[in-house]
Design a protein around this nucleic acid. Sequence first.
RNA 1: GUCCCCAUCGUCUAGUGGCCUAGGACUGUAGGUUUUCAAUCUACCAACGGGGGUUCGAUUCCCCCUGGGGAUGCCA
Length: 488
Amino acid sequence: MHNDNTNLKGVRVRFAPSPTGSLHLGNVRTAIFNWFFARHTGGKFILRIEDTDRERSTPESVSLIMESLKWFGLDWDEGPDVGGNFGPYYQMQRLDKYKKYIDVLIKKNMVYPCFCTTERLAEMRHQMQKQKLPPRYDGKCKNLNKEEIERLTSQGIKHVLRFRVPTTDTTEFKDLVHGKISIENSIMDDFVIVKSNAGPTYNFACVVDDIEMKITHVIRGDDHISNTPKQIAIYKALGINFPEFAHIPLILGPDKAKLSKRHGAASPLEYRDMGYLPHALLNFLTLLGWAPEDNRELMSRDEIVESFSIEKINDRNAVFDSQKLDWMNGVYIRKMPLEELVNIALVELKKAELIKDTKEVDIDKISKIVALIKERLRKFSEIPQLVNYFFDKPVYEEKPVRKFLKKDGVSQMLQELCKVIEEVEPFDIETLEDAVREFIEKKGLKAGQVIHPVRVALTGRAASPPIFDVMQVLGKQTCLKRIADALA
RNA sequence: GUCCCCAUCGUCUAGUGGCCUAGGACUGUAGGUUUUCAAUCUACCAACGGGGGUUCGAUUCCCCCUGGGGAUGCCA
């Protein structure tokens, strides 16, 4: 089938968000790529919660994350709620495992306690930058002897554990999307692996978990490239083979900066609330940094699963283009069965207080209305705005009123037309149109000269679905009344 | 500042030395259809950042510059 030039048997990938708020589209895209890769290869997709940041992690965020993934239909084979053989799936519940690895590193003398204050560290970095040097720990605590360590500890001074990074050579790895990436070890920092509160840091916990959970491919954002050499250093110190890495390009906002909360609604749940279809967003996001062999764009989930491959992930950052998303959402809305759209419309209409109780609603009428606006929709939140005049008195917009209603003779013409409308029986689209057209012809007018004023009188605006359809839904009496009111 | 990554239309992308007078999609523009809008159909606008190499031949390979992004945390 497809050759990803990697071993595709027994693939295990993970999505490992930190629960410090809701997901944003960048995170989601990472989850999507991991999920498609797992499903394409018949491997496992694992959800792991990286909650080592005690201050900012919240259970609410965990729910939000799960809700987001579920909304997209991204299911996980192992995770906090579903369990699995490699749990627990919350890092804060895996402290004993980290301890085990720390002991190994201590035994190997690969770590050392550091008592430096954050102030000193900040000052140190500042100085290094001033001297145009790479900012790295200066090694003040690197060679403390037992007595010094005991003395400082007994004084109650907190310490962290730093990892001794190799000082010579280069660390290299073959990234599945970037190819060879290498970095001089000499510019690498003796980074912290255990915080002063005894908790593990990201770079350490991540490695331990990926080892313990038997992760085969680490697919994550480009912003983690700089962490990878550090993590590889840990793998090497432990004498354990590291997994494949695939760093995927970042999603940029319109300002070309990494996508973040600054760019307005960044959470998928917010997109849901704005009226986007999960599959439209999923399809769109999948195409940010990836394209199938044949460059298709509109693809079903199964089609993507079928053709997804890491090889085809490109390595340039992608700007998020909401216009294209809107287009794609519109395409999928048009493909929806009407009943489904009606149900969504009901919710939107109620939210906008255009209808009161969904139970006492004329479904037949709503269906007709929804059918009329279906191809005019780009997202569900637009529904109320598009149909409000079917429920409430129209809000007359100034410009169309001036242009079509306030013209000489229009008032009289409409009054005469009302007499025609009154006679239309049955009040269906065809009969109505025939009658009105006959009127138009008799008066020697052009269709637009009648239809535009009628539209404005009935809807308050210059654009609407085909007017006879609108009239039919409105009903004879409402039409007559609205025209009369508009002329008053 | 330091390190890393990246560089095709405004945006998402195809393109892996000749098939490229660079293809598709979104947007935009013009037109057809229509009572308007939308949808739809047709056409059009629009790109290989610059400079050196390598080669018979570079969008494709190498180097430099420029530009953009990321990382530089006891956040992940």
